[in-house]
Design a protein around this nucleic acid. Sequence first.
DNA 1: ACATGGGATTAAAACGTGTCAACCCCGCTG
DNA 2: CAGCGGGGTTGACACGTTTTAATCCCATGT
Lengths: 369, 369
Amino acid sequence: MSQSERRHTSGPTGGGELSTGGTGRPGTVGIKQVAARAGVSPGTVSNVLNRPERVAAATRARVEQAIVDLGFVRNGSASTLRAGHSSTIGLMVLDLGNPFFTDVARGVEDTASERGYAVILSSSGESDEREQRNLRVFAEQRVRGVLLTPVGDDGEKAGALRDRGVPVVLLDHPTPRANQCSVAVDDVAGGELAAGRLLGEGARTLGFVTGPPVLRQCADRRKGALRALRAAGLGREAFREVAVPAMNARAGQEAARRLLESGPLPEAVFCANDLLALGVLRVLLQAGVKVPTDVALIGYDDIEFSAAAAVPLSSVRQPTYQLGRIATELLLEECDDPGGHAHQQVMFQPELVVRESSRRGGVPEGSPS
Amino acid sequence: MSQSERRHTSGPTGGGELSTGGTGRPGTVGIKQVAARAGVSPGTVSNVLNRPERVAAATRARVEQAIVDLGFVRNGSASTLRAGHSSTIGLMVLDLGNPFFTDVARGVEDTASERGYAVILSSSGESDEREQRNLRVFAEQRVRGVLLTPVGDDGEKAGALRDRGVPVVLLDHPTPRANQCSVAVDDVAGGELAAGRLLGEGARTLGFVTGPPVLRQCADRRKGALRALRAAGLGREAFREVAVPAMNARAGQEAARRLLESGPLPEAVFCANDLLALGVLRVLLQAGVKVPTDVALIGYDDIEFSAAAAVPLSSVRQPTYQLGRIATELLLEECDDPGGHAHQQVMFQPELVVRESSRRGGVPEGSPS
DNA sequence: ACATGGGATTAAAACGTGTCAACCCCGCTG
DNA sequence: CAGCGGGGTTGACACGTTTTAATCCCATGT
C-alpha cells in the first residue's frame, strides 16, 4: 500500500450543482404525471406498462410518448409493495473471488435477464454471519426467489425464507429435503476421480489440502479421496491432511508451508480447490520441489488460470455456467408457477482434466485443453 | 460440456409442501401486527426501528420482543416508497470475471455494510447496452447512490441518475465534471511505467496488446506506453498494436496468435491487463517462444494469479481494495449530507511489480512478491 | 328504436411504512 | 393549586403503483 495518492477538491460551492442541477430536477414524475400529460387516467398508464395488449393502439402510443417525454421510470418500491413481491432474485455465493462462482454468476445473470428478472448478487465470504445478514437483506427487499450456496451444512438458514413463501434453490449443494430444488455436482465422485488418478500414477502417499471442513464441498471431496485410497489398498496412515480456514491462494501457500515443515512430503497432493492448488504449487516450486516429479498435484474447479500455471494444473472440471443457468431456470419456474412446479434435484457428474501437474510416469491421457 | 447429468424428480404432490408449509405461513406480519402484540401503536414500532432513542426503554424492549416472536422483517419496499430512497447502493463494474473488479467489490461491500448499506452488484460485461439496462434497474430500485465504472468514455450514461438526485461516483475512472466525485488510478503513468521498464531493459520494439480502445483504461495505458516509446527515442514504427474485443485470457490467446502470424515478434510486449497477458504468455510458451529471453512481458492489475503464472508475471499494481473503499466513503458521505459535501477527484499512483517475465539481462529490481 | 354485448377506460381502494402534528400524562415551578 | 413544559405515544395521512369492479361508448342484431 505504498501508492501515493493525490486529491483534488472542488468545494461544494464550486460549480452549478444546485439541487435542481442539470436539466432541472423534474420534481418527481410518476405514473400520475404521465397520465396527465397523455390525457388518460393513471390506471391506463399502469396497463400500458403491464398489459399493453389491453389498451388501444392509439392511446398506448400517446402514453408511451409521454413516458419518454417525461423520462419516467417506474418506481420499483411501489410496484413491489403493491404486488407483494419484486421481480428480482437474490444470488448468494461463497466467494466472489473464486472464478468458479463468478462463472456460475454469469450463467445466473444471463438466464435471469432473459426472463426479465434482475439479480442481486451477494457473497457470504464463507462466513455464517455474513450469510445471515445478506439473507436478511434479501428478505427485506422481498426478492422473488433465492439461489443459495449455503456455508452451513444443511442450508436451513434459508428455511425462514421458504416459510415466507420465497422459493429457494440450493446451488452447488444437494438438498436433503424433497420439497426444494437443488443443483449440484457430485463432489464425492470428483474427489475419487482426482485421488484415484494420483494413486493410479503410482503415488503411495496422498496429501489432501482443504478449506474449512464444515463446507460440504470440502467434506465430500475428502470422502471421495478416502474412497480412492481404500480402493488402492492403502490405509489411513498414507493420508496426510492439511486444513486451512479459507479457500484462496494465500491459504494454499500456508498449507504448503505446513506440509513442508512437518515430515516428509506426500508423493501426491490433492487440493479441494484450484486456488489452494495454485498457492501450494507456488510454494513448492519456490522450495525447489519438482512438480510433478517429486510431488504430483491435482486441483478442483478447473478455473481459467489453472491451465496457465507455472506447471499446468490438472483439475476436476464442473459445468459452472450450466450450473447457474439450470438453477435459475428451476427457480424461475417455481416463481412463475408455484403450484404446478415439480421440485428437482439435479446432480451433474464432474470430469477430470489431466495436465502436466499430475503426470508422473504414466502415459498422457484425458483431455488437456 | 460432456458432463452427464442425473435428475431426480419429486412430484409437486410429493411431500407436505402445502403453501402454508413449514411452521405455518404467518399470513403477512407487518409493523401493525407487531404493534398489536406489543400493545402499542404502529408509529411506536416504527420509532423503535428508526429512532430507538426516542422511545422509552421498557416499551422498546416489549416491541423488540414482539419483533422476534413474530419473526417480523421490515418491508423494504414500503420503507423505500415512503422515505423516497432506499438504503442500498448500486455497484456496476466492467467485468466480474476480472479479479481486479472483485477485489474492488470487496472493498465496496465491506465499507457499505459497515455503514448499514446494502450493495447491489452488477456487471456490464463491457457492453454499453447491458450497462444501460442495469442502470435502469438501479433507477427503478431507487438506490441511494451509484458506483460506476463506465464503459463509455465519459460516463454520461449516469447523467440521468444524477439529474434525478442520485449521487454517482465514478470508479476507476476520472471525471471531467467538477460536480462529481471520482476515484481512479493514473493509467497513463502506469502505462509509461510498464513500457518504460521494458524499453529500459533493452527492447527496441514494443508490442501492445489491448482490449476495446473505447475503454479509457486501454486508451490511457496506450498513451503512457507511447510516451515511454518517445522518451526512449523510438518512433512509431517500433510500436506494434493488437486490439481484441475483450479483456480476458481467451482474448489474450487470440492476440498472441495474431502477433505470431504477422511478422517478427516484438522484443517486448505490454498487455493492458493481466488476463490478456496470461493468455499471451500461454500461447507464446506453447509456440516455443522463451519468456523473457525472446520476448519480455508485462501485464497490468497484478492479480493474484500473476505471481503463480508459468513465468511469474511482472505487472502494474493498483490499490484495488482501497479504490473500492474510498469510492464508497465518498459516495456515502454525499448520500448522507448532499449539502455540505465537497466533491473530490482522487487519483492514485500505480506501482510496478517486477517479476521474472520482464527480466532480460538487467539486474533484478523492484519488489517481487 | 331499443336492448345486448364487448372492448376501452376510469375511479377508488388497497399495499406497509415514515412522519408530523397533536395529545396525554406527570412532575415541577410559581 | 394552576400553569407549564417536555418526554412518550398516538392517529392519520401520504408515498406511487396495481387491481377490481364499475362505467362508458359504440357497433351489432332484433
